Simulated assay, not measured.
Amino acid sequence: MKRFEWDSLRPEEVCQVCFEPLIRIYKQRMADHPLENSEVIKEDFYSDLTKRQRGLFSFHVFYDHAVESLEEFYWWSTYFGAQPKIWSAIQSGVNYLGDEPMLQILDDIGLVLKAYPHPRNLDEFNVTREDFVRNQALLDSTSPLFTKFKASSPLTLQKIAVILAITSRNSSCSKISS
Protein backbone atom coordinates (compact mmCIF):
# COMPACT_ATOMS: atom_id res chain seq x y z
CA MET A 1 0.00 0.00 0.00
CA LYS A 2 1.30 3.41 -0.90
CA ARG A 3 1.80 5.93 1.88
CA PHE A 4 -0.84 8.34 0.57
CA GLU A 5 -3.36 5.48 0.55
CA TRP A 6 -2.41 4.52 4.11
CA ASP A 7 -2.64 8.13 5.27
CA SER A 8 -6.14 8.49 3.80
CA LEU A 9 -7.58 5.57 5.80
CA ARG A 10 -9.95 6.15 8.73
CA PRO A 11 -8.87 4.47 12.03
CA GLU A 12 -11.27 1.55 11.63
CA GLU A 13 -9.95 0.99 8.09
CA VAL A 14 -6.33 0.97 9.33
CA CYS A 15 -7.31 -1.63 11.90
CA GLN A 16 -9.14 -3.71 9.29
CA VAL A 17 -6.26 -3.53 6.79
CA CYS A 18 -3.87 -4.82 9.44
CA PHE A 19 -6.32 -7.32 10.94
CA GLU A 20 -7.33 -9.07 7.72
CA PRO A 21 -3.94 -10.70 6.99
CA LEU A 22 -3.67 -11.85 10.60
CA ILE A 23 -7.09 -13.49 10.66
CA ARG A 24 -6.36 -15.17 7.31
CA ILE A 25 -3.13 -16.63 8.71
CA TYR A 26 -4.94 -17.72 11.87
CA LYS A 27 -7.74 -19.44 9.93
CA GLN A 28 -5.23 -21.10 7.60
CA ARG A 29 -3.26 -22.50 10.54
CA MET A 30 -6.45 -23.84 12.09
CA ALA A 31 -7.46 -25.41 8.75
CA ASP A 32 -3.99 -26.91 8.20
CA HIS A 33 -4.13 -28.74 11.55
CA PRO A 34 -7.77 -29.82 12.02
CA LEU A 35 -6.92 -32.94 14.02
CA GLU A 36 -4.52 -31.25 16.40
CA ASN A 37 -5.39 -29.60 19.67
CA SER A 38 -6.81 -26.24 18.60
CA GLU A 39 -5.64 -24.63 21.84
CA VAL A 40 -2.02 -25.38 20.92
CA ILE A 41 -2.52 -23.93 17.43
CA LYS A 42 -4.13 -20.79 18.88
CA GLU A 43 -1.36 -20.34 21.45
CA ASP A 44 1.38 -20.87 18.84
CA PHE A 45 -0.23 -18.33 16.53
CA TYR A 46 -0.63 -15.81 19.33
CA SER A 47 2.98 -16.26 20.50
CA ASP A 48 4.18 -15.46 16.97
CA LEU A 49 2.53 -12.04 17.08
CA THR A 50 4.23 -8.85 18.21
CA LYS A 51 2.69 -6.96 21.14
CA ARG A 52 0.97 -4.50 18.84
CA GLN A 53 -0.38 -7.35 16.70
CA ARG A 54 -1.65 -9.08 19.84
CA GLY A 55 -3.45 -5.91 20.88
CA LEU A 56 -4.99 -5.52 17.45
CA PHE A 57 -5.88 -9.18 16.98
CA SER A 58 -7.35 -9.90 20.39
CA PHE A 59 -9.44 -6.73 20.54
CA HIS A 60 -10.57 -6.99 16.93
CA VAL A 61 -11.72 -10.61 17.28
CA PHE A 62 -13.89 -9.59 20.21
CA TYR A 63 -14.99 -6.27 18.74
CA ASP A 64 -16.08 -7.65 15.36
CA HIS A 65 -18.59 -9.93 17.07
CA ALA A 66 -19.55 -7.95 20.16
CA VAL A 67 -20.37 -4.66 18.44
CA GLU A 68 -23.23 -6.19 16.45
CA SER A 69 -25.87 -6.08 19.21
CA LEU A 70 -26.44 -6.30 22.95
CA GLU A 71 -27.10 -10.03 22.63
CA GLU A 72 -23.85 -10.55 20.68
CA PHE A 73 -21.91 -8.46 23.20
CA TYR A 74 -23.22 -10.65 25.99
CA TRP A 75 -22.77 -13.96 24.17
CA TRP A 76 -19.22 -13.29 22.94
CA SER A 77 -18.20 -11.94 26.35
CA THR A 78 -19.52 -15.14 27.89
CA TYR A 79 -17.89 -17.31 25.21
CA PHE A 80 -14.48 -15.69 25.54
CA GLY A 81 -14.92 -15.50 29.31
CA ALA A 82 -15.23 -19.31 29.31
CA GLN A 83 -11.75 -19.34 27.74
CA PRO A 84 -9.60 -17.63 30.37
CA LYS A 85 -6.50 -17.39 28.17
CA ILE A 86 -8.42 -15.67 25.41
CA TRP A 87 -10.24 -13.31 27.79
CA SER A 88 -6.91 -12.46 29.38
CA ALA A 89 -5.42 -11.82 25.92
CA ILE A 90 -8.25 -9.42 25.10
CA GLN A 91 -7.68 -7.57 28.35
CA SER A 92 -3.90 -7.58 27.85
CA GLY A 93 -4.32 -6.21 24.34
CA VAL A 94 -6.48 -3.35 25.59
CA ASN A 95 -4.06 -2.76 28.47
CA TYR A 96 -1.16 -2.58 25.97
CA LEU A 97 -3.08 0.17 24.19
CA GLY A 98 -3.35 2.08 27.46
CA ASP A 99 -7.10 2.24 26.98
CA GLU A 100 -8.40 2.51 30.54
CA PRO A 101 -12.07 3.13 29.65
CA MET A 102 -12.25 -0.03 27.49
CA LEU A 103 -10.31 -2.03 30.06
CA GLN A 104 -12.86 -0.95 32.69
CA ILE A 105 -15.72 -2.09 30.45
CA LEU A 106 -14.07 -5.50 30.04
CA ASP A 107 -13.49 -5.73 33.79
CA ASP A 108 -17.11 -4.77 34.44
CA ILE A 109 -18.55 -7.35 32.04
CA GLY A 110 -16.29 -9.91 33.70
CA LEU A 111 -17.81 -8.97 37.06
CA VAL A 112 -21.33 -9.28 35.66
CA LEU A 113 -20.53 -12.74 34.32
CA LYS A 114 -19.15 -13.77 37.71
CA ALA A 115 -22.27 -12.46 39.48
CA TYR A 116 -24.43 -14.83 37.44
CA PRO A 117 -23.73 -18.54 37.01
CA HIS A 118 -21.73 -18.57 33.77
CA PRO A 119 -19.47 -21.35 32.54
CA ARG A 120 -15.77 -21.02 33.30
CA ASN A 121 -14.69 -23.31 30.44
CA LEU A 122 -15.99 -24.51 27.09
CA ASP A 123 -16.79 -28.00 28.38
CA GLU A 124 -19.56 -26.43 30.46
CA PHE A 125 -20.57 -23.85 27.84
CA ASN A 126 -24.29 -24.01 27.07
CA VAL A 127 -25.16 -20.31 26.96
CA THR A 128 -27.66 -19.13 24.39
CA ARG A 129 -28.64 -15.68 23.31
CA GLU A 130 -32.24 -16.54 24.17
CA ASP A 131 -31.28 -17.22 27.81
CA PHE A 132 -29.92 -13.71 28.00
CA VAL A 133 -33.07 -12.05 26.67
CA ARG A 134 -35.17 -13.96 29.23
CA ASN A 135 -33.06 -12.82 32.21
CA GLN A 136 -34.13 -9.23 32.92
CA ALA A 137 -31.59 -8.68 35.71
CA LEU A 138 -28.73 -9.82 33.47
CA LEU A 139 -30.08 -7.73 30.63
CA ASP A 140 -30.26 -4.69 32.91
CA SER A 141 -26.68 -5.26 34.11
CA THR A 142 -25.25 -5.76 30.64
CA SER A 143 -27.11 -3.09 28.67
CA PRO A 144 -25.23 -0.07 30.09
CA LEU A 145 -21.92 -1.84 29.50
CA PHE A 146 -22.82 -2.42 25.87
CA THR A 147 -23.72 1.25 25.52
CA LYS A 148 -20.32 2.19 26.95
CA PHE A 149 -18.62 -0.40 24.72
CA LYS A 150 -20.21 1.07 21.58
CA ALA A 151 -19.27 4.60 22.67
CA SER A 152 -15.68 3.66 23.59
CA SER A 153 -14.90 1.36 20.66
CA PRO A 154 -14.15 4.14 18.14
CA LEU A 155 -11.56 5.56 20.56
CA THR A 156 -10.04 2.11 21.01
CA LEU A 157 -9.82 1.65 17.24
CA GLN A 158 -8.25 5.09 16.97
CA LYS A 159 -5.61 4.16 19.57
CA ILE A 160 -4.85 0.95 17.68
CA ALA A 161 -4.62 2.90 14.41
CA VAL A 162 -2.18 5.40 15.92
CA ILE A 163 0.08 2.60 17.14
CA LEU A 164 -0.15 0.86 13.77
CA ALA A 165 0.51 4.10 11.89
CA ILE A 166 3.68 4.68 13.87
CA THR A 167 4.99 1.17 13.33
CA SER A 168 3.32 -0.27 10.24
CA ARG A 169 3.68 1.91 7.17
CA ASN A 170 3.78 0.14 3.81
CA SER A 171 1.71 -2.88 4.90
CA SER A 172 4.32 -4.29 7.27
CA CYS A 173 1.50 -4.63 9.81
CA SER A 174 0.77 -8.13 8.51
CA LYS A 175 4.18 -9.64 9.14
CA ILE A 176 4.23 -12.16 11.95
CA SER A 177 7.34 -12.37 14.08
CA SER A 178 9.26 -15.60 14.40
Rank of each mutant, 00 (worst) to 15 (best):
residue 72 E to D: 15
residue 84 P to V: 02
residue 123 D to E: 14
residue 144 P to S: 09
residue 125 F to D: 08
residue 37 N to P: 04
residue 165 A to L: 08
residue 100 E to Y: 10
residue 50 T to F: 05
residue 88 S to D: 06
residue 70 L to F: 04
residue 93 G to A: 10
residue 159 K to A: 06
residue 36 E to V: 01
residue 159 K to R: 14
residue 54 R to N: 02
residue 63 Y to P: 01
residue 144 P to C: 11
residue 121 N to Y: 10
residue 71 E to G: 13
residue 98 G to S: 02
residue 124 E to Q: 15
residue 164 L to T: 09
residue 99 D to Y: 09
residue 62 F to T: 01
residue 48 D to N: 14
residue 60 H to S: 05
residue 77 S to P: 08
residue 121 N to A: 04
residue 106 L to E: 11
residue 108 D to I: 03
residue 106 L to H: 09
residue 104 Q to K: 14
residue 125 F to V: 10
residue 119 P to Y: 09
residue 108 D to Q: 15
residue 130 E to H: 06
residue 63 Y to N: 02
residue 52 R to T: 14
residue 125 F to I: 09
residue 84 P to L: 03
residue 154 P to S: 03
residue 143 S to T: 11
residue 76 W to E: 03
residue 36 E to A: 03
residue 80 F to M: 08
residue 111 L to T: 12
residue 138 L to G: 01
residue 143 S to R: 07
residue 165 A to H: 07
residue 48 D to G: 15
residue 54 R to Q: 11
residue 115 A to D: 12
residue 64 D to E: 15
residue 111 L to Y: 09
residue 80 F to N: 13
residue 60 H to I: 02
residue 168 S to L: 01
residue 75 W to Q: 04
residue 99 D to N: 07
residue 163 I to K: 11
residue 53 Q to V: 03
residue 55 G to V: 07
residue 134 R to V: 05
residue 67 V to A: 07
residue 73 F to C: 05
residue 58 S to K: 00
residue 115 A to P: 00
residue 140 D to W: 07
residue 102 M to C: 11
residue 164 L to A: 06
residue 83 Q to G: 05
residue 42 K to T: 13
residue 136 Q to Y: 10
residue 162 V to R: 07
residue 146 F to M: 07
residue 87 W to K: 02
residue 107 D to E: 15
residue 39 E to Y: 12
residue 161 A to C: 13
residue 60 H to M: 10
residue 59 F to S: 12
residue 54 R to I: 01
residue 165 A to K: 12
